[in-house]
Structures are given as structure tokens and as C-alpha cells.
Amino acid sequence: MSVDMTQFHQTYLEEAVENLAELESGLLELEKAGEADLNAIFRAAHSIKGGAATFGFEDIASFTHGVETVLDKGRDASLPLTADVTATLLRAVDVLSDLVMAAREGRKAQPADRAPCEQALSAICTASVAAPVVAEAESAEGIEQKVVDVLFKPHANLPQTGSDPLNILRELRSLGDLSLTAKIESVPPLNELDAESLFLWWQGTLETEHPMDDIYDVFLFVQDEAEIALNIIASMTLPVADTQRADTPLVAEPMDNRRAEGAERRMADRRAPDRPAQDTSFIRVATDKVDHLINLIGELVTTNAMVSQHAGGVDADGHAMLHGSVAEMKLPIKCTLSFAVT
């Protein structure tokens, strides 16, 4: 869904002017009387910054951040708001007014006092910590198919923060092939059962191509209200090239040198990084042997399915173990099969 954020600009800028007035009057009061409602002053700056960041006024957002940091420290008394500090904050309000006015008139402003004022603000918060740089470690190494052992044991009071464990399990299922067993041994007898508490927990496996971060994200809101264990028990990286090659038509028409070079580069691009061209070697195998291999794998798949089915009759502990080993079997079989077929 796309939402045109510019439609909210007018409201935001009007609001920013009001917040600026509040900020200024609060600071003037602080300057005169030595005390003021610091929460209200902070809230005004916080609002200006929050809205600016949301609606795309990066200039205003980044500048207000410095003001907000000083006020926040003043609010929790970790930084005394001396006359000097208040004077700097009032200077900042002037800079901020210029920025907001310019935004209202649709022009870009570069108030002369901006940089010195920013320096003064950051000098005040000597202890201010630089924003952590989040490195995007995006791997292009192909798709990592894996089987993850999942344990999700929510605390009894989980429902009381509005979290529904079923929503979490559904979200987990949306990531891949999920197979879970509900553990019922902590459920008390009916006459002792507290209907508002949770006694169930779950264990099983998730077969997925999603990175681990996606799986942890499912539990983001409940990580402190549940025992959560995620362990990769099997994984295999499927080279991207293998999955793409099938639908890439081979170029058969004659071509001049330049085009041939380009085509070669394209082919090279499609190769997975972990399978460089010089490492690829071929062996000749009779087709009946390949057929035989595929048949054998087929039988393995069938056996795997049968074991899964029979496992239903085993007791709880045995079931979990059986289930684990069957799940472990599934992925290598699948990968071998797809490898043999291609």
C-alpha cells in the first residue's frame, strides 16, 4: 500500500509552530524563574523531531535531535540546565524556527547559526554516544535451506500482555514448513485450571529458507515472557545458479565478439560464488545408473514418510526423538533429489 506522506505536511508544520512556541515559552520561563515544566518542554521538542522524521523533514529531525538530547538529560537531572545551557537551547529554537518557516514556504534553509549551535549542543552532552552503525550483512551466497529446532515455552502470564501464542505460531508457520508438538504435561486438572494463564508449550522443527533474524523477529515482543530456543540442526546452501539455470534460455544464434563477451559475463554472473567455473568438472555416467540413483532416493522419501506416520503410535519422549531424526533426514533427501534431477 502506498500513502502519500505530503498530505500530512500542512498539519505537521502547523503543529511544529505550536510546539516551537511551547518550547520557547518554556525555556524563557526556565531562564527567568530557574524552573519550568521540563516534561512539557521535552515533549514539544520530541514531537517536532518525531513528526519531522516521519514526514521526511530530515533537516528538522536531525537538528532537533540535539535539542531533545540536552532536554532529556535535563529532565532526568543528569545534566544541570544552567543559564548557559538554556541560552544555547534558545539559540537552537531560533535556528529551528528558521528551518520550520523555510519548510512552510517550501524552500531550503541554511541558517548561519546552525552549525555553531549544533556544536554547542553536542559540546553540552559530552557523554553523548554516537548512534550505532548497523551493518547490513546481506549475504548473496545463495539460499540457505535449513531445519531449525524450535522450543517455545511461554510464561503462564503471557496472555496478560495481549499476546496470543497462536498468532506467534501462525507467523512462524508462514516462514516455512513447520511441524510442532504441543506439550500438555503442565496443564493442571480442570478444577485447578486458571483459565487466564497459559500452560501449553511447543517443540518441533521449522524447515525454512528465511534467515535466522526473521525467525527471531517472530518472537520479538515475547522474548522476555517465554523460554525460546532456536537451533539449526541441518543446513545446506543451495547455489542460486542451480535454481535459475533451468529457465535461462541458451543463446544459440551466431554473435560477434563483443556480444559474445557480454553473454559470457552474464553467464559468469549467474554462477554462484561458491561454485567458480574452474572447479566444475564432469564425469560420464550411464543413464541407467542415474535412473537407479533416483529410484533409490524415491524409496528413501517413501520410507521417510512411513516412519513419520508410524511415529504417531509412540509415547511422548520417543515421539520427540523419532520426530527429530525424521526431520533431520528430510532435508538431505530433498537436496539430493533435486541435485540428482537437475
Binding site: V3, G162, S163, D164, F221, E225
Partner: peptide
């Protein structure tokens, strides 16, 4: 917030897509 009873949070600044995604998470 969690101690007060909140289910989850949305980090500011957020865009409409992020907002809907978090809502989907707690109220599918």
C-alpha cells in the same frame, strides 16, 4: 511498557507499511 502490560511496540519514525506489518503481527 511491557511491564505496564503493552503487547509490543512500533519504533519511531515509522512508515505506513511498517505500521501495518506490526498490527498484522499482533492482530492477524
Amino acid at each position: 511498557g511491557k511491564q505496564a502490560g503493552a503487547t509490543g511496540w512500533i519504533v519511531k519514525p515509522f512508515n505506513p507499511e511498517q505500521l501495518l506489518k506490526v498490527i498484522q503481527k499482533v492482530m492477524p
